[in-house]
């Protein structure tokens, strides 16, 4: 098994119940800087809750999240994203009335980026936003980046979610089912981007149902069931794990 001592991002004994449902049950694991960590589990196993707790959208009932040795449990989402932990949402959350590239003005206007970029007039941010969109695969010279987000197809909205994370120049990106609802070819076109992010040293934590693609990227995978970790290891080991095959992979592989 993996046993890494690190003070990068540590999830420690997290628990969270909603009424009678235990969404997280003393879940703990470290995240190593620069790795791609996959999180898988059946529907309702608590993956989104985990993401929400790490990023501050939900307070855990007990347990801790530490980032670079600092306690971040219970901090509000804006503080946590300000520290460089960005996330995507399982259901895309664009700003519908704004053109796609203007969506990115919001993170670019955060104090994290403004202090790094040293102010700048508002026109300048548009150029940065367009660059970011190009990076995640919007065709730069087409009309797509200028269309209102409400008019974009789903595939672009997923990319926009990713671009919003990238705009924060994050150290960690946590994606919540980034690939779901995309066709195989769309996922295929996102793969090189994810590879690039990994090469740039961004730590990725990916909650996924698309196992084939995830297993290509991830160095390590955690399997969740009813809020607990039932298995952990490199993809090959997970595929081989008998218990995991029975409860989860049976249907998919």
């Amino acid at each position: 098994m993996f046993e890494v001592t690190t003070d990068f991002l540590v999830v420690d004994e997290l628990s969270k119940s909603f009424g009678g449902v235990k969404a997280l049950d003393r879940l703990g694991f470290p995240v190593v800087q620069g790795e791609v960590l996959g999180i898988i589990g059946l529907n309702g196993s608590g993956k989104t809750t985990l993401v929400n707790v790490i990023t501050g959208f939900i307070r855990p009932d007990s347990g801790h999240v530490r980032f670079r040795g600092k306690e971040i449990t219970g901090l509000p989402p804006e503080k946590i994203s300000g520290l460089g932990i960005a996330r995507t949402f399982q259901t895309v959350r664009p700003f519908h009335h704004l053109p796609a590239f203007k969506n990115l003005i919001v993170p670019l206007y955060s104090s994290r980026i403004r202090s790094a970029a040293g102010g700048g007039r508002w026109g300048d941010r548009d150029a940065v936003a367009l660059d970011l969109l190009e990076e995640v695969g919007f065709e730069r010279d087409s009309a797509v980046p200028y269309k209102p987000a409400a008019a974009l197809p789903h595939g672009y909205l997923r990319r926009l979610e990713l671009a919003r994370c990238l705009a924060l120049r994050p150290e960690v990106i946590i994606t919540d089912e980034l690939f779901s609802g995309l066709s195989s070819s769309e996922v295929g076109s996102l793969m090189p981007l994810m590879e690039r992010l990994r090469e740039r040293g961004i730590t990725l934590m990916m909650v996924e149902h698309r196992l084939r693609e995830l297993f290509q990227l991830a160095g390590r995978v955690i399997v969740m069931e009813q809020g607990r970790k039932i298995a952990e290891g490199p993809p090959q080991a997970i595929v081989a794990d008998k218990a995991v095959r029975e409860t989860y992979l049976g249907a998919e592989l």
């Binding site: 909603f18 009424g19 989104t48 929400n52 959208f57 939900i58 949402f89």
Partner: peptide
């Protein structure tokens, strides 16, 4: 009330 929990759903 349970409303708060419901509203938190992200």
């Amino acid at each position: 009330g349970r409303q708060k929990e419901l509203e938190e759903r992200v």
